[in-house]
Design a protein around this nucleic acid. Structure first.
Lengths: 343, 343
DNA sequence: GTTAGCACTCCTAGTTACTGAGTGCTAATA
DNA sequence: TATTAGCACTCAGTAACTAGGAGTGCTAAC
């Protein structure tokens, strides 16, 4: 059974109405509110077909129909009309991003703020993750006797500091010497590529400082497995409380416990290896904890390199068109802001 | 009307039972479960008295009694018997804290983890905040042309880094010179005490670098108002979902939105200027969003200086005795761990 | 001072009946 | 042949009622 014009119109009407009202949609409603020029009975027939095709379903007999994941998918792919953001919204976003900010982190936080505010859903942002993380500089500063501060600068942007134990006998000059060697050997190397060989070289050159060295090298290894550049930012977590589909406390709990786990979020956001926009509807999402949610994400980039994703997570019953425009708009502004900043 | 022995026993029984069951407690229940040697009728009379005294209340006629905030207060102050932690719990806490950790932050996170895990409530920890924050060191490192990394070490422990704009013409040596002067002028000064005068001196000495200086000094001012050393750590936020008093979605929402606001949490934790343990029951808490919660906090210290608070937040119907033991135990372990670390 | 007895209150759960929205089917219609 | 009107049927939701039970306060007897 093919999807003729009228079926499409009926499906579109059902989805639009359901998105707007969150109530199952009946044939009479459609006949009344959407001008299809046919009677409820005809629409009922079409609906029976649509149900058979899997695009809509009935919560129970004698209720109207609600869209299935498949229905939303069809809608998003074929039926949806693009809906632009309101001029004032666009203006607002633009204005917020043109504030001068120094820290990458603040820009990202801004973005998540805006996304959640305008969409009224939860914003998820995967912080900038640079493909190759190369050492730019390592600095060792004495703190108090027995402790030193190790500062590692990665990609001339990401700064990490760690406190390390050192023997009390180590002097300021020793530290300088060590950091010189480290810089010499590691500068420009990718974090992942620091080979045993290089390590050995360092060990040999600094044989004298064996005992402190192990601490430092441990830390470097640790950096490697440190995914804190993959930091996840959330915004508007409590917005779900406003959604009628989350009036059940267990559902809220489920969703919130998914949002609590950073690994899961990273997983969700990284799932779309596509460049640009990605829409995952309900069960299309890997994680079953959000099988009644849709996730609209977009990758953002700096210098033509993809560095992260931003997205909004809401119920499957979501005004997709507007949400997409929003994500697109924020992506553009975010990318622009970051590029200006990192240039 | 005075509180005679029997009244106390009845009150204690009511509170214990209510804490255990979360159901209003009737006279018959008490007569049966707690061995007071009197009939329900007598207990009813006592209960009427206790109600008049404000220690218990009735949700409605023909329901049992539940403790009021005042009742809990009386219980905590006079009736409660100390309940030790289970040996294995104490053992567990001790063991977790004896893992070697380098970062203050990890220790704090551990503590919040443990608190929430064992109590099944929400843990709130106010990160180490040192009374006087004095400059120990300022370091300026070139990043890319036009940008430098400014590292500020406060109290030889807290490290902050910021990226600042500098004119492209500034060289490595210039930065060294600047940081030398800054260190010279600021070392040992409290953040709050950097006076106009000192600033002026710096300006004079570095007149040559006027334009970059303003950026740096801005940053220093910013540091001053930066309360991120006052960071709040939360653990087990979702535990409230397990509490029967939070089966109502609006209550959950309310509580979670309180927990979302760091300022509020700081406020709550700093409210107790007392040293050591503090118990705030229901309405005793400043913030009305948690007027059906109790907050048990304790200050922790390092080198005899109070540096923060830890606490657990649960419903007023809380096993106070055990919660107190828990908070005390974690405080001791935390303090010990920090002292060992900062020594 | 304590207690048994009793009438009274009020929440809760279950039953019943009713309503209304919505369907699917059938037969009539264009 | 596609559309539509009509109708019987289904079922969630709601309201009204009932019975049961837990608990109280009061009174009078012990």
């Amino acid at each position: 059974m093919p999807m003729d014009e009228r079926k499409k119109k009926v499906l579109q009407a059902i989805i639009q109405d359901y998105i707007a009202t969150a109530e199952p949609v009946g044939s009479r409603t459609i006949a009344r509110k959407y001008d299809l020029g046919v009677s409820p009975a005809t629409i009922r027939n079409e609906m029976a077909d649509l149900e058979e095709l899997g695009y809509i379903e009935q919560p129970h007999t004698s209720a109207g129909r609600i869209p299935s994941d498949l229905g939303y998918r069809y809608y998003v792919d074929w039926l949806m009309e693009k809906e632009k953001l309101k001029p004032y919204e666009e203006e607002y976003i633009h204005q917020v991003f043109s504030q001068k900010m120094k820290e990458i982190e603040s820009v990202i936080k801004q973005a998540s703020e805006i996304l959640s505010q305008i969409s009224n859903y939860t914003a998820i942002i995967l912080g900038p993750q640079l493909g190759k993380r190369t050492f730019q500089r390592i600095e060792l500063l004495p703190l108090v006797p027995g402790k030193a501060l190790m500062i590692t600068i990665i990609n001339s942007r990401f700064v990490r500091h760690h406190i390390i134990d050192i023997p009390e006998s180590i002097t300021h000059l020793d530290l300088e010497r060590i950091s010189m060697v480290l810089n010499d050997k590691l500068h420009g190397y990718a974090l992942e590529q620091v080979k045993k060989e290089t390590m050995k070289e360092i060990y040999e050159e600094l044989a004298h400082y064996k005992n402190i060295l192990s601490n430092i090298l441990d830390m470097i290894e640790h950096l490697n497995s440190d995914h804190s550049t993959e930091k996840v930012y959330l915004g508007g977590t409590l917005n779900i409380f406003n959604q009628p589909e989350f009036k059940d406390i267990d559902k809220v709990k489920n969703l919130l416990s998914v949002l609590e786990k950073d690994e899961v979020l990273v997983d969700l956001l990284e799932a779309n290896d596509t460049v640009g926009l990605s829409i995952k509807i309900g069960g299309e999402n890997k994680h079953q904890g959000i099988s009644n949610c849709s996730l609209i994400t977009s990758t953002y980039q700096v210098n033509d390199e993809i560095v992260g994703s931003i997205g909004i997570l809401g119920p499957t019953r979501m005004p997709y068109s507007k949400a997409i425009s929003l994500v697109e708009c924020v992506t553009i502004n975010l990318t622009r802001a970051l590029e200006k900043m990192l240039k």
